[in-house]
Design a protein around this nucleic acid. Structure first.
Lengths: 331, 331
DNA sequence: GGCCAGCTCGTGAACGTTCACGACCCGCTC
DNA sequence: GAGCGGGTCGTGAACGTTCACGAGCTGGCC
């Protein structure tokens, strides 16, 4: 009555109340299955609500306090099979605790800083892989609870450390036992500074008296794994085992070996890292240093929620998740 | 002053205003880079805001109207490589248009109806694959703009139809040209009622005088593709070409063939459907009826936004996206 | 008749933010 | 000195919902 419901504007609780001849509170009671309302009025109100296609505003609800919370998940690219596996676990873990998940993809984004800032404005807590991890944190992220997955010792915010060193020792033993004598590492990155994974592998092999050679690729993609493998075998023809930085690259190596007619594991033993399902699809199935994504997600979500509730500090907190050797057919 | 800022409660704009000795509006100006504020006060306000770790409430903001909108994306299981490929495209498309994406996974959810209802409460628009698609729509979804991906003619809400019939004709020609004479379909579902894809394939082959046999699996997973292929070859030893319901199952077929020593494409030509990246990782790379996920996402997001703005009706609207034959190495 | 209990329903108030508008001060011009 | 314009800042009001509380009615009991 006070305001004419001109079409276009979505209906509010007041529109429904007026149309049904009741008060706001009665509409609330009908919509939320609350007691203190008769069966007939409830049905009438619901009827009117449907008629006006009324949807309660999440903003109005959120303001009064009893709204669901949301986690912002930042991944690089869902097209890379690593991220969906993580995302799936995070969504499951969050759903279990009654939280929602809002997703952002940094790959191909025009302005990543703006993207992350927007996500931070829409979510209560952030989890993920912002690409500018090595440098300073996004300035829009100060004061925002953030859990970095695959954190280093000095990354800002909270962090889940993914530690492969112990599993790397197991892999070294395994490769040597299978007869590897001229192992190689297909690492990622530029220049001579190895990744954590790479360093662990090199050290584990060296410690056992079977030093490995190292080849690097710029990207950690399927294609770069394939070309990296070709370059590696050209430079070091005697190599009889390859540890790839991750499973996706290892699949690339596998493809290159198929095309070169090199048998895996007959002539070359191959291992990856991450434990993706992808590794069971290729032939032979990939031996890998597997990560329990459910555990990673539980750790990250738990930490993020703790930060939100104030029981976990916003900086410096760390949880460690260990890889474990998963022997399949490629070694 | 009026309310003591006891710790625990997050800081509001009023807390900042009082602590900085200014008004709400001045804080707003400082936080949002608005004109009408001197440089010094702006800096002071921002300093205080950081001090109190103030984060503007998205609910307060949303209520006044100028907030971002969000799409709710419902997928079955991100672990199935089909969905991330779709999700990635949807997120990209949504980001481009300034919308956020909230994600929900129905696989393993205790109460899917509640899950979808909650998502509907948190998002302005829904896109996706609710599993109860064949039956009645979720009652919590009436009045909610919803775009069903892979819709049939009678699915509720808006829909993007994924049509493979034309591409299936191309595939039939292709298989026959490559010498297939005893083709088979590895379909999904129970009983004798074929899927759309299955029907198209059977018809295309029959029309060309090369009728195909049909084998069904209960699930459309990798494992069920493998076991289905074994059953198929046991029942019909002479089969020389297989069309699988989707790429994931086709990868399972490939695995079974590797293990049985059947050469692909030498002894058996194999095709999948969807056009997933996964098909380029396996060896040989999978011939497939590819779907342009970017196009699907554009269609779905565009339709959803149209529904939200009222330019597209909430029921019955359809867009068709066609598959196209992508010949790789498995045929 | 008086009282109480239970059911049904309505009325401020509050949540946190932004918009529209007005107030004030300073310096300049006529 | 009056007037004006620009820069700086503050004050209701509004957004849509739920909570706490109270009002009214009905029926039953003493």
């Amino acid at each position: 009555m006070s305001r004419p419901p001109h079409r276009g504007r979505p209906a509010t609780i007041i529109d429904v109340a007026e149309a049904a001849g009741v008060s706001r509170q009665t509409v609330t009671r009908a919509m939320n299955d609350m007691p203190g309302i008769s069966r007939v009025t409830k049905e009438r109100v619901l009827e009117v609500a449907k008629e006006l296609s009324y949807r309660p505003s999440r903003y109005g609800r959120g303001l009064v306090g009893h709204s669901r919370r949301t986690i912002g998940l930042v991944v690089d690219d869902l097209t890379n099979p690593y991220y969906p596996q993580l995302a799936s676990a995070v969504v499951s873990s969050a759903t279990e605790r009654g939280w929602n998940v809002m997703l952002a993809q940094t790959a191909g984004a025009a302005d990543e800083a703006a993207l992350v800032a927007d996500l931070a404005a829409q979510a209560d807590v952030l989890i993920g892989y912002p690409r500018t991890a090595d440098g300073a944190p996004h300035d829009a992220l100060v004061g925002v609870p953030f859990v970095h997955v695959d954190a280093g010792p000095s990354t800002p915010g909270g962090g889940v450390e993914l530690d492969a060193t112990a599993a790397m020792e197991d892999l070294a033993d395994h490769l040597i036992e299978r007869g590897a004598r001229r192992p190689a590492l297909l690492d990622v990155g530029t220049g001579t500074v190895a990744t954590d994974r790479g360093r662990s592998f090199m050290r584990a092999m060296a410690t056992r008296g079977v030093p490995a050679v190292r080849q690097t690729c710029e990207l950690s993609t399927f294609g770069s794994g394939a070309s990296g493998a070709r370059a590696l075998l050209a430079a070091h023809p005697g190599v009889d085992a390859v540890m790839a930085f991750n499973d996706v690259m290892a699949c690339g190596v596998l493809r290159a070996m198929h095309e070169s007619g090199v048998e895996v594991p007959g002539q070359l033993r191959l291992a990856g890292c991450d434990g993706l399902d992808l590794g069971t699809v290729v032939h032979p199935a990939l031996t890998t240093l597997a990560l329990d994504m459910a555990e990673v997600a539980r750790a990250a979500v738990g930490m993020a929620l703790g930060m939100f509730e104030g029981t976990v500090p916003l900086e410096g907190y760390r949880t460690r998740v260990r890889h474990r050797l998963l022997v399949r057919s490629s070694t």
